[in-house]
Amino acid sequence: MSAVKVFGREPAAWLSLVAVAVKLAAAFGLDVTADQQATINAVAAAVMGVLIAALVHDGIGAALIGFAQAALALAVGFGLDWSAERQAVVLAAATVVVGMWDRTQVTAPVPAPPARLVVGNRDI
């Protein structure tokens, strides 16, 4: 079964399902705070963004960076004790890595100009 058939045109419905499942789990004993629930839902939204970007082949780099930010927020929400500076360095590194990968995926809309040989002041 392909991801397109699973998600169809209803990513918001899937995100609602995740949100309700988290609330249900919390109501029946999962020990998470309201902030942690919100962060779990933010990560679910970021994952959905990556999946949608991959399915439509557009903007996956931005979606991956958003996912990295959400994942770091989730880790901090569950007790990761990193300074703001360390978090910034990790997110900067993620941005550079995604940018380097993105560079290999992008094609210029126009061809490069032909090479020219210049000798003195004249084109040859």
Rank of each mutant, 00 (worst) to 15 (best):
V89I: 14
A34G: 09
A68S: 14
G59T: 07
A44D: 11
N41L: 07
V98Q: 01
G79H: 12
Q37D: 00
L55W: 02
L51E: 11
I60D: 00
V118K: 13
A27T: 03
A3V: 01
V4Y: 04
D31Q: 15
H57C: 04
S2I: 00
G49D: 15
I65L: 06
V50R: 08
A71L: 13
G79L: 09
E10S: 10
A108I: 05
A13W: 08
G79M: 06
N41D: 12
L15Q: 13
G49Y: 11
N41G: 07
A62R: 11
S16P: 00
S83M: 04
A112G: 13
T39Q: 15
I40Q: 09
P113V: 13
A94G: 02
M1H: 01
A19E: 12
Q69F: 05
G66T: 09
T107H: 15
G77S: 05
V106S: 08
V32P: 05
V98C: 02
D81E: 14
F78A: 07
A84P: 01
L80N: 08
A75Q: 08
P109E: 03
R103Q: 14
Q69N: 13
A42P: 08
A12K: 15
A26V: 15
A12P: 04
A46Q: 13
L15T: 10
V90F: 09
A44N: 01
V32C: 08
H57G: 13
V56L: 05
F7L: 14
R86M: 09
V56A: 02
M48H: 10
K23P: 00
W101A: 15
Q87W: 00
I52K: 09
A45F: 04
G79P: 06
F78G: 11
A63V: 03
G61S: 14
Q69T: 14
L72K: 04
T95H: 04
V89N: 10
K5S: 08
A94M: 12
A45L: 07
M48Y: 07
V50A: 11
V47F: 02
A68N: 10
L64C: 05
P111I: 14
D81S: 09
V18G: 01
Q87C: 06
R86Q: 12
L74P: 00
I60E: 10
A54R: 09
V96R: 12
P11V: 05
M1E: 05
A115D: 14
A62M: 06
E10L: 04
A13G: 01
I40V: 15
R103Y: 12
R103N: 11
P113I: 08
D31S: 12
V6F: 11
G99W: 07
G49E: 08
